[in-house]
Design a protein around this nucleic acid. Structure first.
Length: 287
DNA sequence: GCGACAG
DNA sequence: ATCTTGTCGC
């Protein structure tokens, strides 16, 4: 049997995978028109100075404004079990998290956290189309904060995954400054790990701990950075929305206690933890 | 053509 | 992303 009559119980028409891919490309092109890749934010960036004082750098936005204080991190964890809900089960198979850190605190205190459990994913994971799978649940968490007028609403969002994907997607749709943080290289436009390694080693003694990633097409796709002394494996920083690559690098440097920037790391740890502790029933936080 | 491929 | 124990080291 190859599925004759499979659609009898579905209301939605069946659309081929290739049509979906095309639609995703078109949507990304539309979002790209609203994308801002330069500094355009209302806050100022604190710069630690050698004299012990704290100088303040102008944001590209409007001059003045509050210091950057609340930085958000988002992540989605998955259960080993059901990736798509086959059975009509209430077991959670995914957990989206939003955390907010006060970056003016030496310890980078977590001042807000929220989660959203999922019982099914209607969108599969496809490299380059991560946003279509993870953005909806994360947008919902942001919207919930905004709707309730929460005072900890982030001034900046760190998103796991490389830019020109989830970070841009979220940044544009939520209209929030965003930076993409990849823990692995996204193999596009000729980028390879060996190439990154070579460039990092070449710049090893120049005082800089990051390199710019340029694709074979000539486009600047982001930067690879060794965020910790001991780590030879870099993290990948890319533009999300309203923050330039240079500014993104400065910001990431100041919020890394470990290899992975703290907002991302906390969102990661806490979403995984929340999923484990609730892997049997309904969430209750959203209906 | 085949494999690799952010999370 | 997830499956997984201990282990070597600061």
């Amino acid at each position: 049997m190859d599925g004759i009559g499979e659609n009898h119980h579905q209301l939605k028409p069946k659309i081929s995978g290739e049509s979906m891919m095309l639609a995703c490309y078109l949507i990304q092109d539309l979002l790209k028109e609203r994308l801002i890749t330069q500094d355009d934010f209302p806050w100022r960036l604190p710069i630690p100075s050698s004299s012990g004082n704290v100088a303040v750098e102008e944001g590209g936005g409007g001059g003045g404004g509050a210091l950057l204080k609340y930085v958000g991190g988002v992540d989605v964890s998955y259960s080993k079990e059901l990736d798509s809900a086959e059975a009509a089960s209430t077991a959670a198979c995914g957990c989206g998290s939003l955390v907010v850190l006060d970056v003016t605190t030496p310890t980078l205190q977590v001042v807000y956290q929220d989660f959203s459990l999922l019982t099914n994913f209607d969108v599969p994971y496809i490299p380059s189309f991560l946003a279509f799978r993870e953005a909806p649940i994360l947008l919902q968490l942001l919207q919930k904060m905004k709707n309730t007028g929460n005072p900890f609403y982030p001034q900046l969002l760190l998103v796991d995954g490389n830019g020109f994907g989830l970070a841009c997607h979220l940044g544009v749709l939520a209209n929030i400054p965003a930076i993409g943080i990849g823990k692995n290289l996204h193999h596009v436009d000729g980028l390879t790990e060996s190439g990154v390694r070579q460039l990092l080693q070449a710049k090893d003694n120049s005082g800089e701990d990051f390199i710019t990633l340029t694709g074979s097409s000539g486009c600047v796709l982001g930067a690879a950075m060794r965020s910790t002394k001991g780590s030879c494996k870099p993290i990948y920083i890319s533009v999300g929305h309203r923050v330039s690559l240079n500014t993104a690098i400065k910001i990431v440097k100041m919020i890394c206690k470990y290899r992975v920037p703290e907002p991302i790391r906390q969102a990661d740890i806490r979403s995984r933890d929340h999923l484990q502790k609730n892997s049997g029933g309904n969430d209750g936080t959203l209906q």
